[in-house]
Simulated assay, not measured.
Amino acid sequence: MLLKIEFESETPIYQQIKNQIIKGIATGELAIGEDLPSVRQMAADIGINFHTVNKVYTQLKQEGWVVVHRKSGVMINPDLKAELTEDYLQTLEENLETLAAEAYLRGVSKEDFHGMIDKKYSSFIGRGRK
């Protein structure tokens, strides 16, 4: 998987990496059980501090997306069961509220906003995890 980092973006680099790994799992671009580069290797490939990659891997591990083995490194969790929890639903609703508020203030119509969400969600169906 090729990561595309926008160094001038307002989105922090660690968040860009994390988002792309999760999208990669959803699309099937990253397979369940697939090895990810070591912290140092990914940092060197991207040209960033290894602490940034370590932060990404730590968060992904805490959320259950990856597992870390001392000998074999980091891999997409072979037992991935992304559970729908009350905490996740609350976070999702908060994030959507912010996105909806910004879209409203910038003049995006309700229909266009719904269409964008539907298009993005539908793009994952049948491509990766079911």
Rank of each mutant, 00 (worst) to 15 (best):
K55D: 08
I46Q: 09
Q41Y: 09
N77F: 11
V56Y: 08
K55N: 08
Q41V: 06
T52H: 03
M75P: 00
K61M: 06
W65R: 01
I76G: 03
L60G: 02
M75Y: 09
N77S: 11
L80I: 14
R70L: 09
T52G: 01
A82Q: 08
S72E: 03
N49V: 11
I48Q: 02
L60H: 05
R70A: 09
I48E: 03
K61V: 04
G64E: 11
L80S: 05
V74L: 02
G64D: 03
Q59V: 11
M42N: 06
I46F: 15
D45E: 15
T58F: 07
K81C: 02
V53Y: 07
Y57M: 04
T52I: 15
D45Q: 14
M75N: 03
V68W: 07
F50S: 14
V68A: 08
H51Q: 11
N54W: 01
M75V: 12
H69P: 00
A43S: 12
V68N: 05
R70I: 06
A44F: 13
G64R: 07
V66W: 01
V68G: 01
T58K: 11
K81Q: 06
F50W: 03
V68F: 14
R70T: 10
N54A: 11
H69S: 12
N49C: 05
F50C: 01
D79R: 11
A44R: 11
K71P: 00
L80T: 04
G47F: 12
M42D: 00
L60A: 05
V56S: 03
S72C: 00
V56H: 12
A43G: 04
T52M: 04
N54T: 03
N77H: 10
H69K: 13
I48K: 01
V53P: 02
Q62G: 09
V68I: 15
V66F: 08
R70H: 10
A44S: 13
V56C: 05
Q59S: 07
I46M: 10
Q41A: 13
W65I: 00
F50Y: 15
P78H: 12
A43M: 08
Y57F: 13
T58R: 14
V66R: 01
V68E: 06
I76T: 04
